[in-house]
Nucleic acid binder design. Structure first.
Length: 875
RNA sequence: GGGAGCUUAGCUCAGCUGGUUCAGAGCAUCUGCCUUACAAGCAGAGGGUCACUGGUUCGAACCCAGUAGCUCCCA
């Protein structure tokens, strides 16, 4: 069969994925083997695959495939996340395009649309994972809003409420005016902003003027948010501030609304900032809220849920908050109350999902009491600090610790419909009970409020934060809440590795650890591999608006899944951002091609039934040594989750040692056959290398593994054995191989063709280390006659091979002076080296302090250098 | 404002508890080759004051202090 000159992934990848599926290799059921479990970070159900997913899932697939080949019962659980805000936003947008508003159609109809949407688009991202080669157990696909997982959420909520870990309270929360929902602190992204700082004068009240005996005047405050002036209830200054001391206790007038408010003093105030006067707006700022509580001030919320001015403000009603800012500044100017405007840099919170500017708002919501939680489950922090749960790279331990030690209550209610509805039921006066369903709620209610005669309660309209279900994921995918004693859960949990981005360390990783210890008393996983964030060449994050994010499926179509996997992995040590560049996936594709052609080479060999030659035998042993060393390196790299280094080791093993060296050593001259024994050995080595490669590049390795055995391999590669570490091997002295490089170099420097034949003379104390390599040296260095310890030829090129001398007779265009110069340079180098070594050896302090083995090494270096110098001097 | 981390070749990064003249890898670059496996290739080569300044040490890319620049997290 004619084989294509270039590897063609299209002919290979889908075929093998289908085959693996049909054979059920991805499926896992509990048995007596050791389990190896990974739960996928569930992508948003309506999402599409992006580069981050590619990196993340490739790493998981590498870990899973390796474990599977090591004889473990590998189980990779796939699934999707309902992603409350993101999905609801998409459905709202879709309905808007049809001219439908969610409030018009009501909750039930809206949810029908959402489920329809989910059915239609929910599977896309999982299908895309197949293209990548992800060996997930599709029978185990879960969805965070399916019945069992929803029940788990409800049960956990109820339990935590009973345990006093969940409470309903009125707090200042983050409000997203576009999504019209609250957000947790983690969902607020702070961005640096160029803002204007407005200096606004609040005039003295009549009584103040009277008391001061003046006819005019006022206090000037600096604010970036003049549109909240209508909510001002006080002016606050520092008690020690000499400028304002006399005004404390007096009143001033809030501009525009002409409300008379007090001037108060509190040492919270920073005298240096602005004018040293703070306008107190308890409804719209966290710090003002605290001051408001302390001094029992009213909180006037002047904004509506969509960020417009509320009727309560009295003026500008209905105007958008930013439009209002402009308008009020204009009006203040006209009133002569705007003193000046300064440009400042500050940070402004934005919604992670909608990017809207966040408003602080006082609202009644559900919270998890985190301080209390951490008090009860100290293991959540300890496990990470003591490496019971290992972070890779470990630098994220600090980040984790810092967050844990400063943890705030978690706002878990969201004003959305798509999600897990909060299992709380209310009567008309706001009394509520928490229960599994309406019936149970009523029963409990009657017990709790026996004197009330309510027959119907209404359920909380809000749903829970998406992460309130995600944090249960490693437990709930194995139905650990439904039945603590089920076989899957007992077998697979705790899971082994979690692979995710550092951006969700708080959202998800930390909370899964909390859930693990709180609901089960056990860690959810043993290792967390934090990937980097994929950026473009210029270190910009990949984003739709920049258009710098390639479509992963296009890349796979162009370069093959193996090529893309390799390209992404090669440059991504754990925790480092990866700078994506198409040349990397090109490198991956080229590597596939290289391997493909290695196969083409041996597939074309004619075979003869003759015994293996000594040279081929030696080449085989030599390659085996290289292979074993590489395998050990690969295992060591895996142990530290240095996957990129493991892959690089394999890359070099295949390209340099297998292709460039081993195959060249045993390759028969054109048209000549190869011995059966040699071919078998080459095939064996090739197959070993493919096994090592398989977790990284599953498709091409499986294809060639099969091809090597003429379509009848004993086993599919995916379930063969991954090469083991620490297998003993015969050590081969390979010093002779540097002769090849030296001679090729000589030829190159003289501009000679590789076809130009050379003879060579070696001066050595031990010719045996060279003799066995002769046939290979002849072949690869194109040398004809080899002699040992003969006289130095009249005219020759020379080089040092270790401590031995190599002469290559060559009469033409030889420049004696140049050759001499080369030797001189070598001598200068060696003498310098010797001097530095001598300096150490004659230094008493060195001899006194250095470890014996270091001294021994230095002595050896001295002896070697002296011998080399002696030889060079003789010429 | 608080915290963490980074700075090594043109680029991306290794360099473990100081000890081969220790300065490495891949890619890129340069030179010569279309040598019947592969030009998506082959054979070679050249690139670095290890951010800067001091200190500790027989010895520092590595340890310590300071300076500068960058990144991330938190408020």
């Amino acid at each position: 069969m004619e084989l294509d000159k270039h590897y063609n992934p299209q002919n290979v990848e889908d075929k093998w994925y289908k085959h693996w599926m049909e054979k059920g290799y991805f499926q896992s059921v509990p048995d007596d083997r050791e389990p190896f479990t990974i739960v996928i970070p569930p992508p948003n159900v309506t999402g599409v695959l992006h580069m981050g997913h590619m990196l993340n899932n490739t790493i998981q697939d590498v870990l899973i495939r390796k474990a599977r080949m090591e004889g473990k019962n590998a189980c990779w659980v796939p699934g999707t996340d309902h992603a409350s805000i993101a999905t609801e936003a998409k459905v709202v947008k879709m309905l808007a395009e049809q001219g439908v508003k969610k409030t018009d159609i009501g909750r039930e109809a809206f949810l029908n649309h959402a489920w329809e949407w989910k059915e239609k688009y929910g599977g896309i991202i999982l299908e895309q994972l197949k293209k990548l080669g992800a060996s997930v157990d599709w029978n185990r696909t879960r969805f965070t809003m399916e019945e069992d997982l929803s029940n788990a959420v409800t049960d956990v909520f109820i339990q935590m409420f009973k345990d006093g870990l969940i409470y309903r309270g009125t707090r200042m929360v983050n409000w997203d005016p576009v999504g019209k929902t609250t957000l947790s602190d983690e969902e607020v992204i702070f961005k640096e902003n160029n803002s204007q700082l407005f200096f606004v004068t609040y005039p003295f009240s009549e009584s103040t003027m009277k008391a001061l005996g003046v006819n005019e005047g006022g206090l000037t405050v600096a604010t970036t948010r003049p549109e909240t002036i209508m909510g001002d209830v006080a002016i606050c200054v520092h008690p020690d501030d000499e400028r304002y001391k006399h005004l404390v206790g007096k009143t001033i007038i809030v501009p525009v609304v002409n409300r008379e408010v007090p001037v108060i003093a509190d040492d919270y105030i920073d005298m240096e900032f602005g004018t040293g006067c703070l306008k107190v707006t308890p409804a719209h700022d966290e710090n003002d809220y605290r001051i408001g509580e302390k001094y029992k001030l009213e909180a006037i919320d002047v904004l509506t849920e969509d960020g417009k001015i509320h009727e309560r403000a009295g003026v500008y009603v209905g105007l958008d908050r930013f439009a209002c800012r402009k308008q009020i500044v204009k009006d203040l100017e006209q009133l002569g109350l705007l003193q000046k405007t300064e440009q400042i840099k500050n940070t402004v919170g934005h919604s992670e999902r909608t990017d809207a500017v966040i408003e602080k708002r006082i609202s009644t919501q559900w919270f998890v009491n985190m301080q209390e939680f951490m008090k009860r489950y100290p293991k959540v922090l300890d496990a990470v600090m003591t490496d019971e749960i290992k972070f890779h790279p470990p630098k994220f331990k600090n980040v984790y610790k810092h967050w844990m030690e400063n943890i705030k209550d978690w706002n878990i209610s969201r004003q959305l419909w798509w999600g897990h509805r909060i299992p709380a039921w209310y009567d008309e006066s706001g009394n509520f009970v928490v229960a599994k369903d309406a019936d149970e709620a009523l029963t409990i209610y009657k017990q709790q409020y026996p004197d009330k005669s309510v027959q119907t309660l209404s359920q909380d309209e809000d749903v829970l934060d998406t992460w309130f279900s995600s944090w249960l994921w490693p437990i709930s995918v194995f139905d650990g809440f439904k039945d603590k004693n089920n076989a899957d859960y007992k077998y697979y949990y705790p899971t082994n590795d979690l692979v995710t981005g550092p951006d969700i360390i708080f959202f998800w990783v930390a909370r899964m650890i909390m859930a693990g210890y709180a609901f089960n008393g056990e860690k959810p996983f043993s290792n967390v591999y934090f990937t980097g964030i994929i950026r473009d060449k210029l270190r910009r994050k990949m984003s739709k608006s920049l258009g710098n994010s390639p479509d992963p499926l296009d890349l796979i179509a162009k370069f093959g899944a193996d090529g893309v996997r390799m390209g992404i992995l090669l440059s991504s040590p754990a925790g480092n951002d990866i700078l994506y560049d198409e040349s990397q996936v090109e490198q991956g594709r080229n590597f596939c091609n290289k391997i493909w052609n290695a196969y083409r080479l041996i597939a074309g060999w004619q075979v003869i039934e003759s015994p293996i030659s000594e040279g081929d035998k030696l080449a085989g042993k030599w390659f085996n040594m290289k292979f074993r060393q590489a395998v050990d390196d690969v295992h060591a790299a895996f142990a530290d989750y240095r996957l990129n280094e493991a892959l690089m080791t394999i890359y070099k093993l295949i390209w340099d040692d297998f292709c460039s060296s081993y195959l060249e050593m045993v390759k028969p001259p054109f048209g000549e056959p190869v011995s059966r024994e040699t071919l078998d050995e080459v095939k064996h080595h090739f197959d070993q290398v493919l096994k090592l490669l398989h977790p990284f590049m599953p498709f091409i390795s499986e294809e060639l593994h099969t091809a090597l055995y003429e379509g009848n391999p004993e086993k599919a590669l995916i379930v063969t054995e991954f090469p083991k570490a620490n297998v003993p091997y015969e050590t081969i002295n390979e010093q002779a191989l540097s002769i090849i490089t030296e001679i090729r170099n000589m030829r190159n420097s003289k501009g000679l063709s590789p076809k130009h034949e050379f003879d060579m003379v070696l001066r050595t104390a031990d010719s045996s280390i060279y003799v066995q390599w002769e046939s290979i040296i002849r072949k690869l260095a194109n040398v004809v006659n080899i002699s040992y310890n003969a006289d130095k030829p009249e005219k020759c090129l020379n080089a040092l091979i270790g401590k031995d001398e190599l002469f290559v007779p060559y009469a033409e265009q030889i420049d004696e002076a140049e050759e001499q110069k080369k030797i001189e340079e070598e001598l200068i180098y060696l003498k310098g080296f010797l001097k530095s070594v001598d300096a150490k050896l004659t230094n008493e302090k060195f001899m006194a302090n250095a470890k014996p083995d270091v001294i021994e090494k230095e002595k050896q270096k001295k002896a070697d250098a002296e011998e080399k110098i002696r030889k060079l001097m003789m010429n």
